[in-house]
Every structure is written in C-alpha cells, then in structure tokens.
C-alpha cells in the first residue's frame, strides 16, 4: 500500500479546516441584570462580530474570491444565518442540554423560554440531534458549511456557472472524503446533504424572529447585522 499523491479533495478539506475561524466569545455585560433584552442584545452583538469573521472565512473557500463581488455578496446574504446556525449546532454537539452560542454563552431551555426563544431553541435542537445521530466530524462540518454558502439559491446571481462550479467542487470534496474516510457508509454524503433543507428552514425561522425583534425596536443591533437582516426581507 502506498499513499499516492494527495488528492484534490483532501487539499480542499484541509484548506477549509485551516480557514476555520478562532473562537468568538459572547462576553455578556456583567453590569447589566439578566433579562430577555440582555440575552437578545448579547446574541445580536455576537452575531454581528461573527458575521465579520464569516465574511473573512468565505474568502478562504477555494474559488469564492474568483466570483464577482456581486455574487460573493449574494451568496453571503443568502446563507449567513445557515452558516451562523451550523456553527452553533456543531459547538452544541457534545452538550446534552443547551445551545452553545459561544463557549461563554450556553443557553438552556429555561433561559431560552425566558428570552422568548423557546421555539427557536427546540427547532435548533432538532438539528443538533440530526447531526449527533450522524456523528458529523469536523471535516464534514467545514465542508457542509462551505456548501451551504455555495448553495444559497441567491436570487440575484450574475454568473450561475461559476457558482455551479463551486458547488460541484465542494460536493466532490465531500463525496471523496466520505469514500476515503467513511467507506463503510456509502450513503453518508447523501445523508449529510439531506440535512441542508432543515438547516435552511431553521435559519429562515431565526431570521423571521429577529425581524420581529427588530420591528419592536427594544434591542440595539449593529449595522452589519441589520444590513444582513435587511437583505433577507
């Protein structure tokens, strides 16, 4: 047995692993008493900072930076909540109770209910359970996250062929990774791709919720978060 040349997929997956952002902390303000507003403010602030990081991360996806600026924007505007959510879900896998928005901000069902987030908590937990059952690994997580971006079904797209090429490249990377690392589960790549509809559906519910929060006007939101929320009207 000889290892042979490093396969193209392995390079893509290892690039995606290297592109994984550093941890971000929620840092809830200790001087402010706990309330639903505090929780939502902390989450919106965290999301705003994560968005900056996600935009930087996207540039490391092979082929993304070659897309037109307009198409890069469209993909990010379409998929940002799916990417944020997938991060929360992956971080939450080892925890039996609670969603790990950040290592310093784990929210359980009681805290979620008090913040008006119980429905979102339960549907996000459904995603956690789905990935837990699949025993998704980090390589699969980073590839699926890039695929969610490439597959955002953005409405205003200039060069659909280049986006299709990006999707094909990432899908191929996932399939080849599975054939090599999980060869005993021939349907695994398909099973992972079949989680994407639930991810989109859940992301859509989260966006709707934050549209309503925004309309109430009680929670301060930073500009980038607002901008991305507005793109999903």
């Amino acid at each position: 047995i000889h290892p042979g040349p490093k396969k193209a997929y392995a390079k893509i997956v290892s690039n995606l692993l290297l592109a994984e952002p550093e941890k971000i902390y929620a840092m809830p303000d200790p001087t402010v008493p706990d309330s639903d507003i505090k929780t939502l403010t902390t989450l919106c602030d965290l999301a705003d900072r994560e968005l900056v990081v996600i935009i930087g991360w996207a540039k490391h996806i092979p082929g993304f930076s070659s897309l037109s600026l307009g198409d890069q924007m469209s993909l990010l505007q379409g998929a940002w909540m799916e990417i944020l959510l997938l991060g929360v879900v992956f971080r939450s896998l080892p925890y039996q109770e609670g969603l790990v928005y950040a290592e310093d901000y784990i929210i359980d069902e009681v805290h979620s209910r008090m913040s008006g987030l119980r429905d979102l908590y339960l549907c996000t937990l459904q995603l956690v359970q789905r990935y837990r059952k699949l025993r998704i690994d980090k390589e699969e997580y980073v590839t699926l996250k890039a695929l969610a971006l490439a597959n955002s079904d953005a409405v205003h797209v200039e060069d659909i062929q280049s986006i299709q090429k990006l999707q094909d490249l990432l899908q191929e990377a996932l399939q080849e990774y599975e054939s090599s690392q999980h060869w005993e589960e021939p349907r695994r790549a398909g099973q992972l791709l079949l989680t994407l509809p639930l991810l989109r559906q859940t992301a859509s519910r989260v966006v709707q919720h934050f549209h309503a929060v925004r309309a109430q006007g009680r929670v301060p939101m930073h500009k980038l978060f607002l901008e991305m929320l507005e793109a999903k009207m």
Binding site: G56, L224, A231
Partner: peptide, 19 residues
Amino acid sequence: TERHKILHRLLQEGSPSDI
C-alpha cells in the same frame, strides 16, 4: 451595494465591522 455597504467594504478590504 449602497444598501449593503459594510458587506461590500468587508469583502473588498477586510476592514472591521462598522459599529
């Protein structure tokens, strides 16, 4: 792009979020 100027700028320049 006018409505999405922070995203536009971050993609072009990589500067931090305009808070």
